[in-house]
Nucleic acid binder design. Structure first.
Length: 422
RNA sequence: GUGGGUGUAGCUCAGUCGGUAGAGCACCAGGUUGUGAUCCUGGGUGUCGCGGGUUCGAGCCCCGUCACUCACCCCA
Protein backbone atom coordinates (compact mmCIF):
# COMPACT_ATOMS: atom_id res chain seq x y z
CA UNK A 1 0.00 0.00 0.00
CA UNK A 2 2.54 2.58 1.06
CA UNK A 3 6.11 2.91 -0.13
CA UNK A 4 7.19 2.52 3.48
CA UNK A 5 8.21 -0.56 5.39
CA UNK A 6 6.11 -3.65 5.08
CA UNK A 7 6.23 -7.15 6.51
CA UNK A 8 8.70 -9.28 4.50
CA UNK A 9 7.42 -11.27 1.56
CA UNK A 10 5.60 -14.38 2.68
CA UNK A 11 5.02 -13.11 6.23
CA UNK A 12 1.99 -11.48 7.80
CA UNK A 13 0.90 -9.70 10.96
CA UNK A 14 -1.88 -11.08 13.12
CA UNK A 15 -3.91 -8.22 14.56
CA UNK A 16 -6.93 -7.95 16.83
CA UNK A 17 -9.51 -9.37 16.66
CA UNK A 18 -7.96 -12.23 14.63
CA UNK A 19 -5.10 -12.52 17.08
CA UNK A 20 -7.52 -13.66 19.81
CA UNK A 21 -8.59 -16.51 17.56
CA UNK A 22 -4.96 -17.39 16.93
CA UNK A 23 -4.31 -17.66 20.67
CA UNK A 24 -7.44 -19.74 21.16
CA UNK A 25 -6.43 -22.16 18.41
CA UNK A 26 -2.88 -22.44 19.71
CA UNK A 27 -4.01 -23.12 23.26
CA UNK A 28 -6.73 -25.55 22.28
CA UNK A 29 -4.27 -27.56 20.21
CA UNK A 30 -1.82 -27.87 23.09
CA UNK A 31 -4.33 -28.60 25.86
CA UNK A 32 -4.62 -32.34 25.06
CA UNK A 33 -0.82 -32.65 25.27
CA UNK A 34 -0.70 -31.07 28.69
CA UNK A 35 -3.49 -33.38 29.86
CA UNK A 36 -1.55 -36.42 28.59
CA UNK A 37 1.62 -35.76 30.57
CA UNK A 38 3.70 -34.06 27.89
CA UNK A 39 6.18 -31.49 29.20
CA UNK A 40 6.80 -28.09 27.66
CA UNK A 41 10.19 -27.47 26.06
CA UNK A 42 11.64 -24.29 24.66
CA UNK A 43 14.52 -24.42 22.22
CA UNK A 44 16.27 -21.70 20.18
CA UNK A 45 14.65 -20.46 17.03
CA UNK A 46 17.96 -21.04 15.24
CA UNK A 47 20.32 -24.00 15.44
CA UNK A 48 23.64 -25.06 14.01
CA UNK A 49 22.91 -25.80 10.38
CA UNK A 50 23.99 -29.43 10.82
CA UNK A 51 21.01 -30.07 13.11
CA UNK A 52 18.75 -29.74 10.09
CA UNK A 53 20.99 -30.94 7.28
CA UNK A 54 21.64 -34.18 9.17
CA UNK A 55 18.27 -34.38 10.88
CA UNK A 56 15.82 -33.42 8.17
CA UNK A 57 17.94 -34.93 5.42
CA UNK A 58 20.51 -33.61 2.93
CA UNK A 59 18.42 -34.53 -0.07
CA UNK A 60 15.14 -32.95 1.01
CA UNK A 61 13.72 -29.83 -0.60
CA UNK A 62 13.53 -28.26 2.82
CA UNK A 63 17.27 -28.50 3.34
CA UNK A 64 18.46 -27.95 -0.21
CA UNK A 65 16.42 -24.91 -1.15
CA UNK A 66 14.18 -23.65 1.63
CA UNK A 67 16.36 -22.87 4.64
CA UNK A 68 17.30 -19.46 5.98
CA UNK A 69 20.98 -20.17 6.57
CA UNK A 70 23.55 -17.54 7.51
CA UNK A 71 26.96 -17.16 9.12
CA UNK A 72 27.00 -15.28 12.39
CA UNK A 73 29.76 -12.83 13.30
CA UNK A 74 31.77 -15.66 14.77
CA UNK A 75 31.74 -17.59 11.51
CA UNK A 76 29.24 -20.24 12.68
CA UNK A 77 26.73 -21.50 10.15
CA UNK A 78 23.30 -21.11 11.69
CA UNK A 79 19.83 -21.80 10.32
CA UNK A 80 16.40 -20.51 11.29
CA UNK A 81 14.48 -23.68 12.10
CA UNK A 82 12.39 -24.97 9.18
CA UNK A 83 10.59 -27.33 11.57
CA UNK A 84 10.70 -28.03 15.29
CA UNK A 85 11.41 -31.74 15.64
CA UNK A 86 15.14 -31.70 14.91
CA UNK A 87 15.82 -29.03 17.51
CA UNK A 88 13.79 -30.87 20.12
CA UNK A 89 15.70 -34.05 19.37
CA UNK A 90 19.00 -32.18 19.63
CA UNK A 91 18.01 -30.95 23.09
CA UNK A 92 16.87 -34.44 24.06
CA UNK A 93 20.30 -35.82 23.16
CA UNK A 94 22.33 -32.91 24.55
CA UNK A 95 20.68 -33.14 27.96
CA UNK A 96 20.74 -36.95 27.98
CA UNK A 97 17.02 -37.22 28.65
CA UNK A 98 17.23 -40.77 27.29
CA UNK A 99 19.01 -41.76 30.50
CA UNK A 100 15.84 -41.16 32.48
CA UNK A 101 12.39 -42.70 32.47
CA UNK A 102 11.05 -43.59 29.05
CA UNK A 103 9.20 -42.55 27.04
CA UNK A 104 10.13 -38.89 27.28
CA UNK A 105 7.08 -36.89 26.23
CA UNK A 106 7.64 -33.32 25.09
CA UNK A 107 5.86 -30.51 23.31
CA UNK A 108 6.65 -27.04 22.09
CA UNK A 109 5.10 -24.30 20.00
CA UNK A 110 6.72 -21.57 18.01
CA UNK A 111 7.93 -20.05 14.78
CA UNK A 112 9.40 -21.93 11.85
CA UNK A 113 10.84 -20.51 8.64
CA UNK A 114 11.04 -21.75 5.09
CA UNK A 115 12.00 -19.83 1.97
CA UNK A 116 9.16 -20.86 -0.35
CA UNK A 117 6.89 -19.21 -2.88
CA UNK A 118 4.00 -17.91 -0.76
CA UNK A 119 0.58 -19.38 -1.40
CA UNK A 120 -2.69 -19.82 0.46
CA UNK A 121 -1.73 -21.40 3.77
CA UNK A 122 1.98 -21.43 2.94
CA UNK A 123 4.15 -18.72 4.40
CA UNK A 124 7.83 -18.09 4.97
CA UNK A 125 7.17 -17.63 8.65
CA UNK A 126 4.61 -19.87 10.31
CA UNK A 127 3.76 -21.30 13.70
CA UNK A 128 3.74 -24.95 14.63
CA UNK A 129 2.68 -26.95 17.63
CA UNK A 130 5.09 -29.86 17.87
CA UNK A 131 5.06 -32.91 20.13
CA UNK A 132 7.35 -35.89 20.51
CA UNK A 133 7.27 -39.17 22.44
CA UNK A 134 10.82 -40.46 22.57
CA UNK A 135 12.61 -43.63 23.54
CA UNK A 136 9.88 -46.26 23.33
CA UNK A 137 8.86 -48.21 20.24
CA UNK A 138 5.42 -49.21 21.46
CA UNK A 139 2.54 -49.18 18.94
CA UNK A 140 0.25 -47.99 21.73
CA UNK A 141 2.37 -44.85 21.86
CA UNK A 142 1.90 -44.32 18.12
CA UNK A 143 -1.84 -44.52 18.71
CA UNK A 144 -1.68 -42.10 21.64
CA UNK A 145 0.18 -39.54 19.54
CA UNK A 146 -2.25 -39.75 16.64
CA UNK A 147 -5.26 -39.62 18.96
CA UNK A 148 -3.95 -36.51 20.72
CA UNK A 149 -3.67 -34.77 17.38
CA UNK A 150 -7.23 -35.71 16.52
CA UNK A 151 -8.37 -34.50 19.94
CA UNK A 152 -7.00 -31.01 19.40
CA UNK A 153 -8.92 -30.61 16.16
CA UNK A 154 -12.07 -32.04 17.70
CA UNK A 155 -11.81 -29.66 20.66
CA UNK A 156 -11.80 -26.77 18.22
CA UNK A 157 -15.03 -28.07 16.77
CA UNK A 158 -13.51 -29.00 13.41
CA UNK A 159 -15.33 -31.68 11.45
CA UNK A 160 -14.14 -31.34 7.84
CA UNK A 161 -10.78 -32.97 8.43
CA UNK A 162 -9.45 -36.42 7.79
CA UNK A 163 -6.67 -38.56 9.17
CA UNK A 164 -4.51 -40.17 6.50
CA UNK A 165 -2.51 -43.12 7.76
CA UNK A 166 0.11 -45.48 6.40
CA UNK A 167 3.37 -47.21 7.24
CA UNK A 168 6.59 -46.30 5.47
CA UNK A 169 8.43 -49.42 6.59
CA UNK A 170 11.78 -49.45 8.31
CA UNK A 171 15.48 -49.90 7.59
CA UNK A 172 15.04 -53.57 6.79
CA UNK A 173 12.14 -53.48 4.36
CA UNK A 174 12.15 -50.00 2.83
CA UNK A 175 15.39 -50.39 0.83
CA UNK A 176 14.03 -53.51 -0.89
CA UNK A 177 10.75 -51.81 -1.68
CA UNK A 178 12.60 -48.77 -2.91
CA UNK A 179 14.41 -50.90 -5.49
CA UNK A 180 11.12 -52.31 -6.69
CA UNK A 181 9.68 -48.84 -7.06
CA UNK A 182 12.73 -47.43 -8.81
CA UNK A 183 12.57 -50.26 -11.35
CA UNK A 184 8.87 -49.56 -11.87
CA UNK A 185 9.34 -45.81 -12.28
CA UNK A 186 12.16 -46.33 -14.77
CA UNK A 187 9.67 -47.76 -17.24
CA UNK A 188 7.35 -44.76 -17.10
CA UNK A 189 7.21 -41.73 -19.36
CA UNK A 190 8.28 -38.96 -17.00
CA UNK A 191 9.68 -35.50 -17.57
CA UNK A 192 13.22 -34.53 -16.66
CA UNK A 193 12.27 -32.87 -13.37
CA UNK A 194 10.21 -35.81 -12.16
CA UNK A 195 12.92 -38.24 -13.21
CA UNK A 196 15.37 -36.32 -11.05
CA UNK A 197 12.95 -36.48 -8.15
CA UNK A 198 12.53 -40.20 -8.68
CA UNK A 199 16.26 -40.66 -8.34
CA UNK A 200 16.49 -38.72 -5.08
CA UNK A 201 13.27 -39.82 -3.41
CA UNK A 202 11.22 -42.25 -5.53
CA UNK A 203 8.42 -42.45 -2.96
CA UNK A 204 7.62 -38.83 -3.53
CA UNK A 205 6.62 -39.47 -7.14
CA UNK A 206 3.68 -41.46 -5.83
CA UNK A 207 2.32 -38.27 -4.31
CA UNK A 208 2.48 -36.25 -7.56
CA UNK A 209 -0.81 -34.47 -8.15
CA UNK A 210 -0.55 -34.13 -11.92
CA UNK A 211 -3.11 -36.35 -13.67
CA UNK A 212 -0.66 -37.38 -16.41
CA UNK A 213 1.65 -38.73 -13.73
CA UNK A 214 -1.07 -40.30 -11.61
CA UNK A 215 -2.46 -42.08 -14.67
CA UNK A 216 0.76 -44.02 -14.99
CA UNK A 217 0.91 -45.06 -11.34
CA UNK A 218 -2.16 -47.26 -11.27
CA UNK A 219 -0.35 -50.48 -10.49
CA UNK A 220 2.74 -49.06 -8.81
CA UNK A 221 4.09 -51.20 -5.98
CA UNK A 222 3.08 -49.90 -2.56
CA UNK A 223 5.13 -49.92 0.63
CA UNK A 224 2.30 -51.36 2.69
CA UNK A 225 2.35 -54.48 0.50
CA UNK A 226 6.04 -55.00 1.18
CA UNK A 227 6.37 -54.47 4.92
CA UNK A 228 8.56 -56.80 6.93
CA UNK A 229 6.78 -59.08 9.39
CA UNK A 230 7.72 -57.00 12.39
CA UNK A 231 6.79 -53.73 10.73
CA UNK A 232 3.47 -55.16 9.62
CA UNK A 233 2.78 -56.41 13.14
CA UNK A 234 3.60 -52.95 14.48
CA UNK A 235 1.26 -51.27 12.03
CA UNK A 236 -1.54 -53.73 12.78
CA UNK A 237 -1.18 -53.05 16.49
CA UNK A 238 -1.29 -49.29 15.93
CA UNK A 239 -4.52 -49.62 14.00
CA UNK A 240 -6.03 -51.84 16.68
CA UNK A 241 -5.24 -49.28 19.37
CA UNK A 242 -6.62 -46.46 17.24
CA UNK A 243 -9.87 -48.35 16.83
CA UNK A 244 -10.01 -48.86 20.59
CA UNK A 245 -9.48 -45.11 21.02
CA UNK A 246 -12.39 -44.33 18.73
CA UNK A 247 -10.21 -42.77 16.05
CA UNK A 248 -11.18 -43.23 12.43
CA UNK A 249 -8.75 -42.88 9.54
CA UNK A 250 -8.27 -43.34 5.84
CA UNK A 251 -5.61 -45.72 4.61
CA UNK A 252 -3.27 -43.68 2.42
CA UNK A 253 -0.71 -46.08 0.94
CA UNK A 254 0.75 -43.33 -1.25
CA UNK A 255 1.19 -40.84 1.54
CA UNK A 256 4.74 -39.54 1.58
CA UNK A 257 6.38 -37.00 3.79
CA UNK A 258 9.06 -34.62 2.65
CA UNK A 259 11.32 -35.08 5.63
CA UNK A 260 13.71 -38.01 5.45
CA UNK A 261 13.48 -39.12 9.05
CA UNK A 262 10.06 -40.74 8.96
CA UNK A 263 9.72 -44.53 9.34
CA UNK A 264 6.90 -46.96 10.07
CA UNK A 265 3.72 -45.19 11.20
CA UNK A 266 3.21 -42.04 9.16
CA UNK A 267 0.17 -39.80 9.07
CA UNK A 268 -1.23 -36.52 7.95
CA UNK A 269 -4.26 -34.45 8.94
CA UNK A 270 -5.89 -32.84 5.93
CA UNK A 271 -8.72 -30.33 5.84
CA UNK A 272 -11.07 -29.98 2.90
CA UNK A 273 -11.58 -26.23 3.14
CA UNK A 274 -8.06 -24.98 2.53
CA UNK A 275 -7.23 -25.35 -1.16
CA UNK A 276 -3.93 -26.85 -2.20
CA UNK A 277 -2.18 -26.53 1.16
CA UNK A 278 -4.59 -28.90 2.82
CA UNK A 279 -2.30 -30.47 5.43
CA UNK A 280 -3.04 -28.95 8.82
CA UNK A 281 -0.74 -31.39 10.58
CA UNK A 282 1.46 -34.35 9.99
CA UNK A 283 3.90 -36.64 11.62
CA UNK A 284 5.06 -40.14 12.22
CA UNK A 285 7.70 -42.34 13.67
CA UNK A 286 11.36 -41.47 13.18
CA UNK A 287 13.40 -44.23 14.66
CA UNK A 288 16.63 -43.12 12.98
CA UNK A 289 16.61 -39.44 13.82
CA UNK A 290 18.42 -39.60 17.15
CA UNK A 291 21.24 -41.65 15.68
CA UNK A 292 21.47 -39.32 12.68
CA UNK A 293 22.10 -36.45 15.08
CA UNK A 294 24.84 -38.32 16.91
CA UNK A 295 22.66 -39.53 19.75
CA UNK A 296 21.86 -43.03 20.96
CA UNK A 297 19.79 -45.29 18.75
CA UNK A 298 16.41 -44.52 20.30
CA UNK A 299 13.03 -44.42 18.65
CA UNK A 300 10.61 -41.52 18.50
CA UNK A 301 7.24 -40.47 17.20
CA UNK A 302 5.52 -37.13 17.04
CA UNK A 303 3.69 -34.64 14.92
CA UNK A 304 3.62 -31.01 13.93
CA UNK A 305 0.43 -29.03 13.53
CA UNK A 306 0.28 -25.73 11.69
CA UNK A 307 -1.39 -23.18 13.93
CA UNK A 308 -1.96 -20.71 11.10
CA UNK A 309 -3.43 -23.35 8.82
CA UNK A 310 -5.62 -24.68 11.59
CA UNK A 311 -6.88 -21.15 12.14
CA UNK A 312 -7.73 -20.99 8.44
CA UNK A 313 -9.59 -24.28 8.82
CA UNK A 314 -11.50 -22.91 11.81
CA UNK A 315 -12.50 -19.88 9.75
CA UNK A 316 -13.35 -22.04 6.74
CA UNK A 317 -15.82 -23.95 8.89
CA UNK A 318 -17.21 -20.70 10.29
CA UNK A 319 -16.49 -21.68 13.88
CA UNK A 320 -16.91 -18.98 16.50
CA UNK A 321 -13.82 -19.32 18.63
CA UNK A 322 -11.79 -16.87 20.67
CA UNK A 323 -14.36 -14.09 20.60
CA UNK A 324 -12.95 -10.96 22.16
CA UNK A 325 -14.36 -10.56 25.65
CA UNK A 326 -13.78 -6.84 26.05
CA UNK A 327 -13.96 -5.22 29.47
CA UNK A 328 -16.66 -5.43 32.13
CA UNK A 329 -16.61 -1.92 33.52
CA UNK A 330 -15.94 1.48 31.95
CA UNK A 331 -15.48 4.87 33.54
CA UNK A 332 -16.29 8.12 31.73
CA UNK A 333 -14.92 11.27 33.39
CA UNK A 334 -15.81 14.86 32.55
CA UNK A 335 -13.25 17.40 33.67
CA UNK A 336 -9.82 17.10 35.23
CA UNK A 337 -10.97 16.35 38.76
CA UNK A 338 -13.20 13.54 37.52
CA UNK A 339 -10.32 12.26 35.42
CA UNK A 340 -8.23 11.62 38.53
CA UNK A 341 -11.12 9.71 40.05
CA UNK A 342 -11.57 7.68 36.85
CA UNK A 343 -7.91 6.69 36.63
CA UNK A 344 -7.90 5.70 40.30
CA UNK A 345 -11.14 3.76 40.02
CA UNK A 346 -10.02 1.82 36.96
CA UNK A 347 -6.74 0.99 38.68
CA UNK A 348 -8.57 -0.36 41.71
CA UNK A 349 -10.94 -2.42 39.60
CA UNK A 350 -8.11 -4.00 37.65
CA UNK A 351 -6.28 -4.85 40.85
CA UNK A 352 -9.46 -6.53 42.09
CA UNK A 353 -9.63 -8.62 38.93
CA UNK A 354 -12.36 -6.66 37.16
CA UNK A 355 -11.61 -5.91 33.51
CA UNK A 356 -11.98 -2.15 33.29
CA UNK A 357 -11.10 0.74 31.01
CA UNK A 358 -11.61 4.47 30.59
CA UNK A 359 -11.16 7.06 27.85
CA UNK A 360 -7.94 8.84 27.06
CA UNK A 361 -7.43 12.02 25.13
CA UNK A 362 -9.92 14.82 24.69
CA UNK A 363 -13.28 13.36 23.91
CA UNK A 364 -16.72 14.75 24.41
CA UNK A 365 -19.29 12.87 26.45
CA UNK A 366 -20.92 11.48 23.35
CA UNK A 367 -17.63 10.16 22.02
CA UNK A 368 -16.72 8.78 25.42
CA UNK A 369 -20.02 6.92 25.66
CA UNK A 370 -19.44 5.57 22.21
CA UNK A 371 -16.07 4.25 23.35
CA UNK A 372 -17.76 2.79 26.42
CA UNK A 373 -20.26 1.02 24.19
CA UNK A 374 -17.52 -0.37 21.98
CA UNK A 375 -15.56 -1.60 24.97
CA UNK A 376 -18.23 -4.20 25.65
CA UNK A 377 -18.63 -3.06 29.26
CA UNK A 378 -21.94 -3.96 30.84
CA UNK A 379 -21.66 -1.15 33.37
CA UNK A 380 -20.44 2.39 32.96
CA UNK A 381 -19.83 5.07 35.54
CA UNK A 382 -20.15 8.68 34.38
CA UNK A 383 -18.59 11.29 36.66
CA UNK A 384 -18.89 14.99 35.86
CA UNK A 385 -18.52 18.29 37.65
CA UNK A 386 -22.15 18.34 38.75
CA UNK A 387 -21.93 14.83 40.15
CA UNK A 388 -18.73 15.56 42.04
CA UNK A 389 -20.34 18.61 43.58
CA UNK A 390 -22.95 16.25 44.99
CA UNK A 391 -20.37 13.58 45.85
CA UNK A 392 -21.80 10.98 43.45
CA UNK A 393 -21.20 9.22 40.14
CA UNK A 394 -23.80 7.90 37.72
CA UNK A 395 -23.82 4.10 37.44
CA UNK A 396 -25.39 3.03 34.16
CA UNK A 397 -26.39 -0.46 33.06
CA UNK A 398 -25.62 -0.44 29.35
CA UNK A 399 -27.97 -3.30 28.57
CA UNK A 400 -31.08 -1.76 30.13
CA UNK A 401 -30.05 1.89 29.90
CA UNK A 402 -31.00 2.39 33.54
CA UNK A 403 -28.89 4.80 35.52
CA UNK A 404 -28.67 5.75 39.20
CA UNK A 405 -26.53 7.99 41.40
CA UNK A 406 -24.02 6.24 43.65
CA UNK A 407 -21.88 8.00 46.29
CA UNK A 408 -18.27 8.31 45.09
CA UNK A 409 -16.98 6.24 48.00
CA UNK A 410 -19.21 3.35 46.98
CA UNK A 411 -18.53 3.34 43.23
CA UNK A 412 -15.80 0.71 43.43
CA UNK A 413 -17.95 -1.75 45.36
CA UNK A 414 -20.99 -1.06 43.22
CA UNK A 415 -19.05 -1.75 40.00
CA UNK A 416 -17.40 -4.85 41.41
CA UNK A 417 -20.75 -6.24 42.54
CA UNK A 418 -22.44 -5.37 39.27
CA UNK A 419 -19.85 -7.23 37.22
CA UNK A 420 -19.54 -10.32 39.39
CA UNK A 421 -19.88 -13.53 37.46
CA UNK A 422 -19.43 -11.96 34.04
C1' G B 1 12.00 -22.28 -9.18
C1' U B 2 7.46 -22.57 -13.24
C1' G B 3 2.60 -20.76 -14.93
C1' G B 4 -2.21 -17.81 -14.38
C1' G B 5 -4.99 -13.68 -11.96
C1' U B 6 -5.18 -8.98 -9.24
C1' G B 7 -3.24 -4.07 -7.37
C1' U B 8 -8.12 2.68 -6.48
C1' A B 9 -9.73 5.43 1.08
C1' G B 10 -8.69 1.71 7.29
C1' C B 11 -12.14 -2.49 4.89
C1' U B 12 -15.25 -4.28 0.54
C1' C B 13 -15.38 -2.27 -4.10
C1' A B 14 -17.31 1.17 -8.47
C1' G B 15 -14.83 4.38 -11.89
C1' U B 16 -18.23 4.51 -19.04
C1' C B 17 -15.12 6.72 -24.79
C1' G B 18 -8.31 8.78 -21.86
C1' G B 19 -10.56 14.84 -19.43
C1' U B 20 -6.02 14.58 -12.44
C1' A B 21 -11.58 9.94 -8.02
C1' G B 22 -16.44 7.99 -5.84
C1' A B 23 -20.08 4.49 -2.92
C1' G B 24 -21.12 1.47 1.30
C1' C B 25 -19.07 0.13 5.86
C1' A B 26 -15.65 2.00 9.47
C1' C B 27 -13.77 6.48 11.79
C1' C B 28 -14.37 11.81 13.67
C1' A B 29 -17.64 15.95 14.82
C1' G B 30 -22.41 18.20 15.37
C1' G B 31 -27.85 17.75 16.04
C1' U B 32 -28.42 16.99 22.38
C1' U B 33 -23.20 23.45 26.31
C1' G B 34 -24.13 15.72 30.59
C1' U B 35 -25.17 9.99 27.85
C1' G B 36 -23.83 4.68 23.84
C1' A B 37 -26.15 0.97 20.66
C1' U B 38 -31.16 3.80 16.45
C1' C B 39 -31.94 8.39 13.45
C1' C B 40 -30.40 13.09 10.85
C1' U B 41 -26.36 16.43 9.15
C1' G B 42 -21.39 17.41 8.08
C1' G B 43 -16.13 15.76 7.44
C1' G B 44 -12.23 12.12 2.51
C1' U B 45 -8.92 10.37 6.05
C1' G B 46 -5.95 8.87 -1.29
C1' U B 47 1.75 8.63 -3.68
C1' C B 48 -5.11 5.29 -8.05
C1' G B 49 1.46 -0.30 -5.76
C1' C B 50 6.17 1.86 -7.83
C1' G B 51 9.22 3.66 -12.15
C1' G B 52 9.27 5.01 -17.10
C1' G B 53 6.73 5.74 -21.97
C1' U B 54 2.64 7.43 -25.43
C1' U B 55 -0.66 11.81 -25.22
C1' C B 56 -2.54 18.63 -24.96
C1' G B 57 -4.21 15.36 -20.96
C1' A B 58 -3.32 8.62 -18.00
C1' G B 59 -6.72 5.32 -12.47
C1' C B 60 -7.77 3.82 -17.70
C1' C B 61 -3.19 2.61 -23.19
C1' C B 62 2.27 0.49 -23.57
C1' C B 63 6.94 -1.34 -21.14
C1' G B 64 9.39 -2.60 -16.76
C1' U B 65 9.24 -3.61 -11.67
C1' C B 66 7.34 -4.81 -6.82
C1' A B 67 3.56 -6.82 -3.93
C1' C B 68 -0.58 -9.80 -3.21
C1' U B 69 -3.15 -14.03 -4.88
C1' C B 70 -4.18 -19.08 -7.08
C1' A B 71 -2.09 -23.59 -9.03
C1' C B 72 2.44 -26.75 -9.91
C1' C B 73 6.35 -28.08 -6.70
C1' C B 74 6.83 -28.56 -1.45
C1' C B 75 4.55 -29.07 3.19
C1' A B 76 2.41 -27.13 8.64
Amino acid sequence: MSAGLTAPKGTFDTLPPDSARFLAVRDTLTAPLRRAGYGYVETPVFEETAVFSRGVGESTDVVTKEMYTFDDRGGRSLTLRPELTAGLMRAFIEHRLHDGALPVKLWTVGSAFRYERPQAGRYRHFTQVDMEALGTDDPALDAEVVALGVQGFRDLGLTDFELLLTSLGDATCRPQYRELLVAYLAKLDLDEETRRRAAINPLRVLDDKRPEVQAQLGDAPLMVDHLSDSTRAHYDAVRQHLTDLGVTWTEAPRLVRGLDYYTKTTFEFVHSGLGAQSAIGGGGRYDGLSAALGGPDVSGIGYAVGVDRTLLAVQAEGLDIGAVAGVQAFVVPLGSEAKRLAVRLVGQLRQAGVAADTVYGDRGLKGAMKAADRSGASHVVVVGERDLAEGVGQLKDMRTGEQRAVPVAELFDALRRATVGE
